[in-house]
Design a protein around this nucleic acid. Structure first.
Lengths: 346, 346
DNA sequence: TTGTACGCGTTATCAT
DNA sequence: ATGATAACGCGTACAA
């Protein structure tokens, strides 16, 4: 592509003058400006972002540090939110490929080497090592669903505790006392805080806590497979629960499949609540009652916060908690008590 | 971060020598090499990719041109494939934010301005304008699901025609003669080729073609909503079809919902086939029979081909067609004819 | 108002 | 074996 000096030559001015035109400096005569602008259009010149970044020490790009796969529904919706804020921001989004074969590989170095202006961190398997380094590096950072922060690092997450509380309360209100909880391994912020929310909710409602009603996975995946496997032990209990609260929709759907195979009918035999309010909730039969969190909005806000941090070195990073909301569908009995009281075979 | 000249000073050598060490030039004495290497480790120096890119004229990054949203299931699985090939390749992936507010915006210029080494194009709303420009620019390009190519542009897609043929043949084999086809607007390569496959399959099986059995959308979305809406006219037909082949799983699920609302039972009253073999196929009741395409593998191969093109300026771009396969589940009657005949309670 | 000179961090060429 | 110098494309203090 044509470079700035090509333009300068053709316009019969210096490179400096062209640069001034590009960057809207006032000290250029209207006449020269017009001339240069014409040449620029003629040659279809566009300044090279890379070279520009080299001299200014920034790259107009933000990195993403992704600790799970793009195909994960949470991840892909976050991406979609990032994309929305990105439009017309002048920034591009760069996915830094992890060189996981190389023992020397270091994510923070990778960011610095690319002059990335900031980083958004998300995905469910938090990599503590890089995360700490990111905070120390003072590279502007926003964490999604990780409650870490620093001088140049903020975070954003949903109001998990309140969401879980609403779910437990709903189950309680329609008559359930034996409410189980199904979760992946308690290995990151989200799994832990939701679990704590569950325990606290039982407490506030003066419900008994039974260790047997907690089914905890051995890995961090909020997956259907995990839900299916984690449901089995609950169903084999001598005194099984009447309701299951799941830490994600996929877990709930997996759990429902396990019930289905045992011949249990939801919600007649067991009430089920999910978490996320993904598109899937409308697809299951019965439709899944769930705690809604606005993942796309989280993505939008995360990048918004990051761009603010980048553009204002005095910006003090926020800790944002987004509201959650119980969405009642059919999996607890469509309209509450009447349906659930009807007793329960097996 | 420390720069190459910092290292040079501390090591008491010239910048040139440090550069030679970094790039494994042979003309450096073992002694100096060791010394420099030590300093590099000590200072945690890492060469700046941007500066390096400026002089080498490349960026070790590939752009993606995405014509739909990240949350689209096809897109997110392609991304996951790209990610897999990316690991340890030394390349990063950059999403170029479309400046769609700016009438001057031009994607190809954007790529050149970022020194992007190549581009992968995917998503269902092909933007013809940039696509043509990409081909002319001779920037290495791989199209996914768009049958365009050039001197430096190849494409990769599934064997849509054969996939559709298998589906129609299956329906035919289990006794169906009245097979409808449900598709979004015939506005891009995939929708068109699948439709053609359908017509051709009818032909080969000597089945009659009825215009009424084709339900075509007004937009390009392979969405559940579209499936739901496009099914209605088919159900109102005086002589309705006995089977519906849908251009995607989501369309099929939407169609099934429309049937459900009319009180029809799948597969007793209507056989349904989808396309994609997404995770959803196992979630629906009955489980969805579908044409499988390996989207993740398509993503992997697409980037693989692109990297080959980038690294070999003589590489002649390929046109890759990936195999498809019919996955029989329950939505046509689980084991063919017998089941379809045996009526099914509830 | 315009242009010269230097620097951003790196690599390539060519002396030494 | 080592290093001085120019170059990649651009921005900017300063001089003219």
């Amino acid at each position: 592509m044509a470079s700035i000096s090509d333009v300068a030559k053709l316009a019969g001015v210096s490179v400096t003058t062209v640069s001034k035109v590009i960057n809207n400096y006032p000290d250029v005569s209207p006449k020269t400006r017009r001339k240069v602008l014409n040449i620029i259009n003629e040659m279809k010149f566009q300044p090279n972002v890379v070279a520009r970044g080299l001299v200014k020490g920034r790259s107009w790009s933000v990195g993403i540090f992704l600790t799970s796969d793009f195909s994960n529904p949470f991840v892909s919706v976050v991406m979609s939110g990032l994309k929305k804020t990105l439009e017309n921001s002048g920034y591009d989004l760069i996915y830094l490929s992890q060189g996981n074969k190389d023992p020397q590989y270091n994510f923070v170095k990778h960011c610095l080497s690319r002059n990335v202006d900031g980083v958004v961190v998300f995905g469910f398997t938090g990599d503590e090592k890089y995360v700490r380094e990111l905070i120390c590096s003072e590279l502007p950072t926003v964490f999604i669903d990780i409650d870490l922060y620093g001088k140049r690092a903020g975070y954003i997450t949903s109001d998990n505790v309140n969401g879980i509380f609403q779910a437990v309360e709903h189950l309680y209100n329609i008559g359930h006392q034996k409410i189980a909880y199904l979760t992946p391994k308690l290995g990151n912020y989200v799994t832990k805080i939701r679990y704590e929310g569950y325990v606290e909710a039982l407490n506030q409602l003066s419900l008994d806590f039974f260790q047997d009603y907690i089914s905890v996975g051995t890995n961090l995946a909020f997956s259907l497979q995990n839900g299916y496997e984690l449901m089995a032990p609950l169903l084999s209990l001598p005194n099984p629960p009447t309701a299951v609260l799941c830490a994600s929709d996929l877990l709930a759907i997996g759990a429902m499949r396990a019930m289905e195979e045992r011949g249990l009918v939801v919600p007649r035999d067991m009430a089920v609540v999910g978490f996320d309010d993904s598109d899937l909730c409308d697809l299951t039969r019965p439709k899944l009652t769930t705690v809604r969190q606005d993942i796309k909005l989280i993505g939008e806000r995360a990048l918004g916060m990051l761009l603010e941090m980048i553009n204002d070195s005095n910006y003090s990073p926020k800790h944002v908690i987004m509201p959650t909301e119980l969405i009642v569908r059919e999996s607890c009995g469509s309209n509450g008590l009447s349906e659930v009281i009807t007793p329960v075979a097996q």
